[in-house]
Computed example of a mutant assay.
Amino acid sequence: MDIVHVINLLDTGLKTYGAMDTLQRELHARIANGEHPNSFLIFEAEASYTAGRHTQPHDIIDDSIPIIETDRAGSVTWHGPGQLVCYPLVKLAAPVDVIKYIRAVEGAVIDTLQQHFGLAVDRIEGRAGVWIENRKISAIGLKISQDATLHGISLNINTDPASAFAGVIPCGITDATVTSMAEEGVKTSLQDVAEVLTDALEHRLVPLLAPESIKGEVNVYHPAG
């Protein structure tokens, strides 16, 4: 449909979380003010841990590792090589239905993994993200400010099970594990998954967007770096 602008940085190497957080906030401010089109920010991060608003001290196993505090929902998680990060940065129609937005983002991940990669993923009642039985394959942490969205999806493609998430209890959940597409028998690339995921996200999110954010010509702002 090409209604949402895709900023795909996968071919530019690993990114620091700090740099991507700065970029998403710059874009968010412009989108909220109608100065930039709705966008999906796609990247692969250097290894880092981020703690959302609901992180508890016992969620961090190794207190020597650097933890970056962030304002998204959820607990502590890991970002790093082999994980696809996608931030939908879009202006939602008012009044914003937060639950409908969360379900749309989760639904796009489920559509991607079920329909295109044959994985038996689903939601689990009372738990965020996307799961294969008791194995979490995708974490979702979101924020909405000025009717525009920040943060988003981390989807494990071919992460290293020996090192990823090793220093924390992912998302603060003690009775479940983390998995990846590779561990579930699907060999693919971040780029291939990103192409499918952005299409699924656009399909799910377009009905929720503010009408003025998808009409007319807007000059696309390309951040430096």
Rank of each mutant, 00 (worst) to 15 (best):
A47K: 14
K143W: 06
R103P: 00
H203L: 14
G52L: 04
L89G: 04
T55Q: 11
D111C: 08
I102K: 07
L23E: 13
E184C: 09
N134F: 00
L142G: 04
P88K: 11
A108N: 03
A224N: 12
A45R: 06
I132C: 13
I61S: 09
E212T: 12
E217T: 15
D59I: 14
Q146N: 11
I3Q: 14
A93C: 10
A51P: 02
L10E: 09
E46F: 00
G185R: 05
E35C: 09
A166D: 07
A73K: 14
T188R: 10
S75T: 11
T198H: 04
M1S: 07
I110E: 13
S75P: 01
K15F: 08
Y49T: 02
L23W: 09
I157D: 06
G82M: 03
N158W: 00
E183L: 14
G18M: 15
A176I: 03
A120G: 05
S154V: 02
L205Q: 09
S213R: 08
I31M: 05
L92D: 07
H54V: 03
T159I: 07
G129V: 09
R25H: 11
E183G: 13
G74C: 04
P170H: 01
D192M: 12
I67W: 00
Q114F: 10
L10I: 02
V85M: 10
G13K: 07
H54N: 15
E183I: 05
V109M: 08
V130G: 04
I173V: 14
T188V: 10
T77S: 05
R204D: 11
E46A: 12
P95A: 09
I137Q: 00
V90H: 12
N156A: 10
F43T: 07
Y87P: 03
H116I: 10
E44R: 00
P57N: 11
D62G: 06
S48R: 06
I65G: 02
L201V: 01
I124G: 08
T149M: 04
V96G: 09
Y221H: 15
I60L: 07
A93V: 07
L27T: 01
F43W: 11
Y17C: 02
G129Y: 01
I173M: 12
F40V: 13
P170R: 07
P66I: 02
